[in-house]
Simulated assay, not measured.
Amino acid sequence: MERASRAKQVTFMDGIAARLRHARTTVKPEQPMRGAPDFWRAFDWTPEERIERFQANWRSVGGHTERVADLDAAGRFIAERAEELGARIIVRQDQPELATLGLEAAVPQAEVSVWNSDGDVYWKARAAEADIGVVLADGALAYTGTVVVRSAPGKGRSVSLLPTVLFILIPAERLGTRLGEALVPMDEAGREALPAGVHFISGPSRSSDIENDLTIGVHGPGVVYALIVG
Results as ranks from 00 to 15, higher is better:
residue 24 R to E: 10
residue 29 P to A: 09
residue 93 Q to H: 15
residue 113 S to A: 05
residue 114 V to G: 00
residue 130 A to N: 05
residue 54 F to S: 01
residue 38 D to H: 00
residue 124 K to N: 10
residue 143 Y to T: 11
residue 65 T to Y: 09
residue 103 L to E: 11
residue 157 R to P: 02
residue 111 E to R: 12
residue 21 R to A: 15
residue 100 T to A: 14
residue 99 A to D: 12
residue 123 W to Y: 09
residue 137 A to F: 01
residue 125 A to T: 07
residue 106 A to G: 02
residue 140 A to K: 01
residue 149 V to N: 01
residue 46 T to H: 13
residue 50 R to E: 15
residue 69 A to T: 08
residue 133 G to K: 05
residue 89 I to R: 07
residue 115 W to M: 06
residue 71 L to Q: 06
residue 135 V to L: 03
residue 100 T to H: 08
residue 88 R to Y: 04
residue 134 V to P: 02
residue 19 R to N: 11
residue 151 S to R: 01
residue 146 T to Q: 09
residue 44 D to W: 08
residue 153 P to N: 01
residue 122 Y to R: 08
residue 129 E to S: 14
residue 80 E to T: 03
residue 117 S to R: 11
residue 48 E to W: 15
residue 88 R to Q: 13
residue 157 R to T: 01
residue 25 T to N: 09
residue 114 V to E: 04
residue 111 E to D: 12
residue 76 R to C: 00
residue 100 T to W: 12
residue 127 A to K: 00
residue 150 R to L: 05
residue 49 E to L: 04
residue 115 W to P: 00
residue 45 W to E: 11
residue 152 A to G: 15
residue 84 E to D: 13
residue 117 S to G: 06
residue 55 Q to G: 04
residue 81 R to S: 01
residue 107 V to G: 00
residue 150 R to E: 09
residue 116 N to Q: 11
residue 35 G to N: 09
residue 125 A to D: 15
residue 74 A to S: 12
residue 49 E to A: 09
residue 85 L to I: 05
residue 54 F to Y: 07
residue 82 A to L: 09
residue 59 R to Y: 05
